[in-house]
Write a protein that binds this DNA or RNA. Structure first.
Lengths: 209, 209
DNA sequence: ACCATTTTTAGTACGGCGTACGAGAAAAGG
DNA sequence: CCTTTTCTCGTACGCCGTACTAAAAATGGT
């Protein structure tokens, strides 16, 4: 048997609590104290399960876990499906795109996702390093697509004033026109953009970068 | 004449000091106290020039200011040039890609950049809203490209251990292979990838999205 | 049964953060 | 010179991540 006092929780519980908090109140609400409180534990107890807050964020990113995507062997279709799964994950966890940057490959879910991506790209005949780069670029594309999709913050009053005065100044005529017909934005259709982007990227890569 | 006590600094000075600090020590070093100290001012004095720290970050993003790009009327060439200018800016200010997310259009430099992008895209015949979307997507692409270019953090010992054991487990054979030949990464050539991506995106858009 | 050992728990505390508040300083107008 | 206006910045509050440490809870050995 193990020797010491048994842990009251598990790392997975801690990560799940952190994810729940982020889903409910955003990444800023994920503090050690609040995560611990939501488990009924003391703040310092978390450090038994997690090195520090930054690693907890790593674990959260991995912990949302992409659902498995069935691969067909058609790389176009498969990579688009993987990108779609990533998008769905980011829409379900809006903090995810902003938590992604600067996190290196870490947990099993991320590794499994990479493996799936590499597998999907296998029929392209590209070498491993290139396939890894393509996966990173596609992920980045999906992240920025979702971030523009979910909007973002409202501009402040000062920013609105600056914008309207800039528009009124006539210095930015095309911007003024674009904002004028920005009201009726059409459905952007993620699938088609992703398909096109992915196809092009890979065909370019096959041509030898 | 103005009535009250004259300001000891200007907003631009504050923003410049913040940018200098971020360039030297990263975004995390940009605290109100440290920015103020680098100006020889008290921390609270900054609030005369800036609403709060978040607005300061907005102003920093705008403050790095893209150099003007001479447009030729060939949208392919012009948009690629604009993307290249963005990349150069992000390479010069490595904190920029991670500061970009969630910031709405704000200052004159950003507006000027948007105007340039809209102008470059004018020959495509696309409507304003679509052109705005394309600019956002291209910017997002450049940001993730640069972030993967400048690398990122080192994985922890635990992460390395997890990675090597995962690779050794044979569960992720293609990942193992990709990491094996990941050593000699070739020059990715931003220009060609950007050109291809941009061309494809726009031609897709012209086709009616 | 008891004690040594090992591990987890969590209280306390420290330095740093953003920033609300308000007293004092510095200019201009009357 | 006094009022008005504006900027300066010391103090303070609540929050943060987390180092340190004593207490608690389990096992293993005798």
């Amino acid at each position: 048997m193990v020797r010491g006092r048994p842990p009251a929780h598990t790392r997975d519980e801690v990560v799940a609590a952190a994810i729940a908090l982020a889903d409910a109140e955003g990444l800023a609400a994920v503090t050690m104290r609040r995560v611990a409180a939501s488990l009924g534990a003391g703040a310092m107890s978390l450090y038994t399960y997690v090195d520090n807050r930054d690693r907890l964020l790593d674990l959260m990113v991995d912990g949302v876990g992409a659902p498995p995507v069935a691969l067909t062997g058609d790389w176009r279709q498969d990579v688009v499906a993987l990108a779609g799964a990533q998008r769905a994950l980011m829409l379900a966890h809006p903090w995810l795109p902003s938590a992604l940057p600067n996190r290196r490959l870490s947990g099993r879910n991320t590794l499994a996702y990479l493996e799936a991506g590499l597998t999907a790209l296998e029929p392209t005949g590209l070498d491993g390093a290139t396939r890894m780069e393509i996966i990173a670029l596609v992920t980045g594309f999906v992240a920025s697509y979702v971030m523009s999709e979910t909007g973002g913050r409202q501009p402040t009053e000062e920013q609105v004033a600056a914008l309207t005065s800039a528009v009124a100044s006539g210095e930015f005529p095309r911007l003024a026109a674009a904002l004028a017909d920005g009201g009726q934005a059409r459905e952007p259709d993620f699938e088609r953009i992703a398909r096109w982007m992915i196809t092009g990227l890979i065909e370019q890569a096959q041509r030898g970068f």
